[in-house]
Amino acid sequence: MLQRILTHSNKTDLVIDLAELISGFLLVGFLWVHMFFVASVLVGPQAFNQVPKFLEAYYLAQIGIPAVIVLILAHMVLAGRRIPNRLQEMKMIWKHSRLLMHYDTWTWVFQVITGVAIGILAAAHIWTVVSRWTINMSISAERVTQSPYFIFYIILLICGEYHVGIGLYRIGVKWGWFKRQKLSKVLDVITLAIIAMGIVSLFVIKSHAGVTGGGGQ
């Protein structure tokens, strides 16, 4: 009790809550922009090849990628504090969710699961891209034609967008004036649209594999 009184500060709790919110928002922004960059392939391979040049010209690659990595780590620590860490607590939440069969409680459980999954999958994704830096049609196409990678990307995409959609919904209901049902519908549509856009982009990238004249070289 003594230690708690001495160390506890409400301001800190507030700042941590805000930091979680802001890191979350920034990552949402990043992810959506990222998916639009990927979708540039729908315009054409030239557009797609333009993206890394643009990123480098404005130092978005050199500064942006490390910044995103820091953001992800920060968000993992901040949001992760909510994850029940003792086995018994996990069991309690699982049992509670099973008993209650309540939609929003389940989405929270899935948000935790997708969050952990993203942590692992995104690390692998960043590593494969950065370790062979520069992005162009032929490298990307080659990457996604290896079939486990293709599925890997689809899983990462779905986890990421689901996590983002539910995260935004939760921020909205926690702070907001929105009607929950309406907010959730709007976000569902956005999430599905971006997942669809991402999957189509992946197929288009795949279709460019081995095709010369894709501007890849």
């Binding site: 409400n10 507030l14 929270w108 921020i171």
Partner: peptide, 23 residues
């Protein structure tokens, strides 16, 4: 008010599960 509930045991402890709102 902030002193009493502006913390993890109060308002910032809620993760927005909304079970309360539904139930």
């Amino acid at each position: 008010y902030f002193e009493v509930i502006g913390n993890e045991y109060g308002t910032f402890g809620c993760v927005g599960l909304m079970a309360c709102d539904d139930l």
